[in-house]
Design a protein around this nucleic acid. Structure first.
Length: 272
DNA sequence: AACTTAGGCAACCGCTTTAAA
DNA sequence: CTTTAAAGCGGTTGCCTAAGT
């Protein structure tokens, strides 16, 4: 169901947006054809992933490297799971999002076969609305402040400021988690579904807490405290790598965890 | 039946981070 | 140490389809 305006061949920019002086080859844009898919699949099978920038030329594709990578990661990888998001997957997404926020790649890393793009789209088109309908702020999973006529009724299209979020009080002290620096950590960023892909997360989780909303999570706090993994440093609760990794695992493997904290969640308006 | 609106999702954009030279 | 290339990420766009009028 891909539709992206095909023309727009403004070749005046490289794939990274930098201006170019020499006339670039006419890069194709828009939806991929079955033929292109086949070429890419065959090439990756033969040469392996990586070197995306040069891949198009080597493979004989008139696409930019970014486009090839995206197509492979989001659609052509053999381990991609097709089909609707299952109920348990949805439940996991909700719980992970509550802890991780919009870290789609990290969330995807915990859902084998699902891509960050797919989860992001699913979140924006389904789950955020679901939370709103429950009176919860999709960003923080906290109860929406009563804002007459400005919440669930606020229809939106896709993600552009999808949710009317009233000014929030500072989130409760949350674990110190990585911000966008979780990106680009040497792994392919998609965290190889199912392979403990939050290692990079854990490695960076002590960086800073700025900009991470939706994580003020009593769930993790309790969990970490129970593990003795909490320290209060500069007013910011910290968790160690193992604690956080275990916590994410527990989110996946122990539905009981949520039940154990039901009281907490109820206090917050029944989040999740 | 024709038109309009909303939803869904693949693809693109721009920025950040990391690694290599 | 600095610069540059490569890769990855989150946000956004825009087309197609379905539902509604």
């Amino acid at each position: 169901m891909a539709r992206r305006k095909p023309p727009a061949q403004h070749g005046a920019r490289s794939e990274d947006g930098q201006a170019q002086t020499t006339a670039p080859p006419p890069l194709k844009r828009g939806p991929w054809t079955a033929e292109e898919d086949e070429v890419l699949v065959r090439f990756v099978a033969r040469e392996g992933e990586g070197r995306w920038r040069t891949l198009p030329r080597r493979a004989g594709l008139l696409r930019c490297g970014k486009s090839c990578r995206l197509r492979w990661m989001n659609y052509l990888r053999p381990d991609i799971k097709r089909g609707p998001i299952a109920e348990d997957e949805e439940d996991l997404i909700l719980r992970l999002h509550r802890v991780l926020g919009n870290r789609w790649s990290l969330i995807a890393g915990r859902l084998p076969g699902r891509t960050d793009n797919e989860i992001k789209n699913y979140w924006n088109s389904h789950l955020s609305k679901k939370l709103i309908a429950q009176g919860l702020d999709p960003r923080t999973h906290m109860p929406l402040a009563a804002a007459p006529g400005k919440t669930a009724a606020a229809t939106h299209k896709t993600t552009a400021a999808p949710v009317v979020v009233p000014p929030q009080p500072p989130p409760p002290p949350g674990p110190v988690l990585p911000t966008s620096s979780a990106a680009g950590t040497g792994s392919d960023g998609h965290d190889n579904p199912g392979d403990g892909g939050n290692d990079d997360l854990a490695a960076t989780m002590s960086v800073d807490a700025d900009g991470f909303e939706g994580f003020g999570d009593q769930l993790l706090a309790d969990y970490a405290a129970s593990r003795g993994g909490f320290e209060d440093v500069m007013g910011c609760p910290m968790v160690d790598d193992d604690t956080f990794t275990s916590f994410l695992d527990s989110l996946m493997n122990e539905r009981q965890l949520a039940a154990d904290h039901k009281g907490v969640m109820n206090d917050q308006g029944g989040a999740i």
